[in-house]
Amino acid sequence: MYAQMIKTASNGIKPREEMSEEERAFQDKIDNDIKIEPRDWMPEDYRRTLIRQIGQHAHSEVVGQLPEGNWITRAPTLERKAILLAKVQDEAGHGLYLYSAAETLGVSRDELIELLHEGKMKYSSIFNYPTLNWADIGAVGWLVDGAAIVNQVALQRTSYGPYSRAMIRICKEESFHARQGYDAIRAMAFGTPEQKRQAQDALNRLWFPALMMFGPSDAESTHSEQSMAWKIKVKSNDELRQQFVDQTIPQIEYLKLDLPDPNIKWNEERGHYDFSEPDWPEFFNVIKGNGPCNVDRMKDRVAAWDDGEWVRDGLLAHARKKAARKVAAE
């Protein structure tokens, strides 16, 4: 998802008998759905895993502005431009909420940003795919934010208080994102034949990358078990992916677009749609840094950070000078 393949900072789940008294009390709180708050005692591994997960989630919000920002100046109407601008601005806010949540765990935002820029932290694989045309912007809002919502709604119940509160805030804003995307793609799907062709092409290209957002099957993940026990993760990757597929197929059908995968079929027995797995080797390759846009995304982020340094430093120097003058006057 926005946080994919988070390594749990521990090896497997500790059996209850081996837990210290503090650990047991901690696990009891989680089992009883009592939120863990910043100054509460927590296992070091819980803290470290959360920093990784929330940090990666925050980075994804911020880097996720790039593929959409790419089209702000070329939006087809002034209204679409204002909407996209508002949407991208929201994503900056989401990054902020999440960095703030991570900071309650004893890491600073600048430290996290440095780790990203040094390549020691990641962001979601989805943002390493390009947005080639306006239809892609519709598809991103619809599918990428749609997938993000599925994940983030589940995470509202996560055990760490500040993370859960950030998710609640974010979810309130996300449905605007998905709806404006669907509205944009709908205009194209019911537009000229060429517009419809572009809508179909956007769906075809972004479908599998959107499915990859949930991460590989849990069967392959050794880290999921502990994260689930800690309620850092609330639902399995496969469960969330299925939920996304089930909710999205009727939306595709409404648009009268072709399904992006010939194996999509309603399975009466399961009560879910069957579908093909994404190309996991491609996913791992993108994660490793070899996706179509990895290099550009990091270049843009680092440039934004470096080019903004004089502004950050200047404002802080001014604030310090003002504060010193005030003290001297008193």
């Binding site: 601005q89 806010g93 902020l96 909420y97 703030s100 900071e103 935002r109 509160r165 950030a166 805030r169 950050r312 404002l315 802080l316 001014h318 604030a319 003002k322 504060a323």
Partner: peptide, 19 residues
């Protein structure tokens, strides 16, 4: 409602308004 970074109080109010 949350937190944010800002160089001084005045900017904090401005940023809070935006966020």
């Amino acid at each position: 409602v949350g937190s944010l970074h800002a160089p001084d109080a005045e900017m904090a109010v401005k940023n809070a308004r935006d966020v």
